[in-house]
Design a binder for these strands. Structure first.
Lengths: 143, 143
DNA sequence: AGATAATTAGAAATAGATTCTATTTAGAGC
DNA sequence: GCTCTAAATAGAATCTATTTCTAATTATCT
């Protein structure tokens, strides 16, 4: 993961904080919220503002590797994913781990919308929630 | 649409305001936010609190006919839908109209998650955004 | 190294959503 | 229809995640 290159490709300056945010996310297998990322940054930087974290996450999510997780609780979460093919995610509701899914069904959707409904598909949101292999074997579940 | 019966089935009291909220939604082809519903209620009730609208929408969404729209802007929106089969929606980003989709692909998802990933599917979120027939023929688009 | 446009800190503001408490009301039982 | 009780409501207050603002700092181009 070349943080500097990824940031440059977005037309942004490679500031230490921006790179640290990208690195923190790239080292995680789970999605993180802005405050959680901010807490981790505080170990590396003695002065780091929460608005900086929000701003950078939003900017980074315009690229290919940082994805927003759409969560039913309506808070912001981000996840590092370097799979550049179109795909969706399986999100573990217990441990927050995110795994890639191959299935999408985009062609079916487009066929139905553009055929039967006569509309035009712009984007689609597809996310699967559940328990990952490890968590489905444990018994205590806390969403 | 029998508002009283729907509310009773949820174990709630059929108050005039609760019924009005259900009626307002059932008469719309578009999703509405709490404030929009509140404004419409003000035409019918001289005293009506916004928290009442929020509370009732949440309660009503526990039933079968009022659905929450998961919107990328992370605000709450609700939609009346009396199609009780499992299905998803095509949401017009211009006029907000919501239309039912037949395609889902649930079996494929379950097969992939429970097979390759070894996890357990609890729920899935699937929503298609685009322009409906009418709006795709118009040219001005404002999300 | 200097110039400059982007980035940041920190405080303040915003806004959607929720909580709280006293009051009102729907509906069950008579 | 009347009474009772738990549920529902109004309105104010609060919460909290997120965003905006301004002055100071910094990455990067030359």
């Amino acid at each position: 993961m070349d943080a500097k290159r990824i940031i440059k490709e977005l037309g942004l300056k490679a500031t230490p904080k921006r790179m640290a945010i990208l690195e923190i996310l790239s080292e995680e297998f789970v999605y993180l919220g802005p405050e959680e990322i901010w807490r981790r940054l505080q170990a590396r930087f003695k002065r780091i503002g929460l608005p900086t974290v929000y701003r950078n996450l939003e900017e980074l999510s315009h690229g290919e590797v940082i994805m927003k997780i759409i969560h039913p609780n309506r808070k912001l979460y981000y996840y590092y994913c370097n799979n550049t093919n179109h795909h969706h995610h399986f999100v573990c509701i217990a441990c927050r781990k995110v795994q890639d899914l191959e299935f999408c069904g985009e062609e079916h959707i487009i066929k139905e919308v553009e055929g039967a409904l006569g509309g035009k598909v712009v984007s689609h949101l597809f996310q699967v929630y559940g328990l990952c292999r490890e968590c489905s074997h444990a018994n205590a579940i806390s969403l």
